[in-house]
Amino acid sequence: MLLIPCPFCGLRNEEEFTSGSEADRHRPADPIALDDQAWVAHLFERANPKGAVREWWWHGRGCRLWFVLERDTVTNAIKVVP
């Protein structure tokens, strides 16, 4: 179980959090302007890299803050993103 540094609460157990997947992947500003292929890629394709990823986490069973942290998908080492 990961130990996750909530910027508001400090180190808390993973079971209090919900992962929100890739942080730098935002909804396109104008989805209608995208063709089908680009839109489907946005919906379903993920980079899933080996190594460092920036991802959203939600302290839903705590202070309810959404925040971004950097996690290594190989070692699970976590860094807080300011």
Binding site: W58, R64, W66
Partner: peptide, 11 residues
């Protein structure tokens, strides 16, 4: 609830 919060806070 998680859905509403996610759209508001992250997007």
């Amino acid at each position: 609830y998680a859905w509403l919060e996610r759209w508001h806070k992250c997007e």
